[in-house]
């Protein structure tokens, strides 16, 4: 076959056309995110049953294996868990008392208690596979009441926010994504800043923290609720490193360790504000 045969030439021309078209699409969709999100709504419907079935099979196989392995030492583990349960129950009683007192005090102060949000459980069915974006696909969507901008949390803290919703699945932008931003505060000192995804995998950075603020390694960082997206008081992570910002001496450069282990997420809760919005 000649190197410059008509077929090769035709393929080169089509390649050039498709390459330019792909670049044009990239540039356009980067400027108008709504295009990709609308396509995701359609694609989400098509992919969800396939991904869920695959996921069910693989998870089932892995769970069976884990259960078999975990049988070893299960009696000892059960004894320890029973002791731990007793401790937690006692602690829980105290917490209920504190919660009730907190509720009464808030009412006395005239603060609004945000009890009309709904918490929707969901399974993680797939994870994004790019260095540049960090995302998850979860098993519930519009049909269950999920909406764009709803907050996603796990038992250990903040996970991210919903960026696209199809009828039966949703795309979650993780807080570790470089394009994510969360208004946050340090629990101990109340210093404020913005938490964004770090450049290294899974790291978080807290930007715009006033350099006069006193911070310590291990301080817990929570959502401030001031961005209007994430509810107040959700744990984001702990301070792992404090340095000087490379761009300005006015701010600290704070690296956080996320409280959630994103590589082991199986179940999440979607905090849906729909009831509140419809009020």
């Amino acid at each position: 076959m000649s190197y410059f045969s008509p077929l090769n030439f035709k393929i080169l021309i089509h390649s050039l056309f498709l390459f330019v078209l792909a670049l044009f699409l990239s540039a356009n969709t980067a400027q108008r995110p709504s295009i990709a999100r609308n396509i995701f709504v359609v694609w989400g419907e098509i992919q969800a049953p396939f991904v869920e079935s695959f996921n069910f099979l693989i998870s089932g196989a892995m769970n069976s294996w884990n259960r078999y392995v975990n049988l070893i030492g299960v009696a000892e583990k059960a004894r320890l868990l029973e002791m731990r349960l007793a401790e937690v129950e006692a602690h829980n009683l105290q917490m209920l008392e504190v919660e009730s007192e907190n509720h009464r005090l808030k009412q006395l102060l005239g603060l609004r208690v945000d009890s009309n949000k709904s918490y929707l459980p969901a399974r993680v069915i797939a994870a994004g596979s790019s260095i540049w974006t960090r995302s998850l696909i979860i098993s519930i969507g519009k049909a269950e009441g999920v909406a764009v901008s709803d907050t996603v949390i796990s038992s250990s803290g903040l996970v991210g926010q919903i960026v696209a919703v199809s009828n039966s699945s949703s795309l979650v932008l993780l807080i570790t994504d470089p394009q994510s931003g969360v208004d946050a505060l340090v629990q101990r000192s109340r210093a404020r800043g913005v938490v964004v995804g770090g450049e290294a995998n899974g790291n978080l950075e807290m930007l715009y923290v006033d350099s006069r603020e006193e911070l310590s390694i291990g301080d817990r960082v929570l959502t401030s609720g001031l961005d209007g997206v994430f509810p107040k008081g959700i744990l984001i992570g702990q301070i792992a490193e404090i340095g000087e910002s490379s761009t300005s001496a006015l701010f600290h450069k704070v690296t956080l360790l996320a409280s959630t282990d994103f590589s082991r997420l199986e179940e999440v809760l979607v905090v849906s504000g729909q009831k509140e919005k419809s009020d």
């Binding site: 390649s15 498709l18 390459f19 792909a22 670049l23 044009f24 699409l25 990239s26 540039a27 969709t29 980067a30 995110p33 295009i35 990709a36 999100r37 396509i39 995701f40 694609w43 992919q47 797939a126 994004g128 596979s129 790019s130 540049w132 974006t133 960090r134 995302s135 696909i137 960026v163 795309l171 932008l173 994504d177 394009q179």
Partner: peptide
């Protein structure tokens, strides 16, 4: 294009361009 769509956010095209 589909790979970019499931990858996460809103940019469609880099996977297709790299593929070519």
């Amino acid at each position: 294009i589909i790979a970019d769509l499931t990858n996460g956010l809103n940019i469609l095209g880099p996977s297709a361009a790299a593929g070519v």
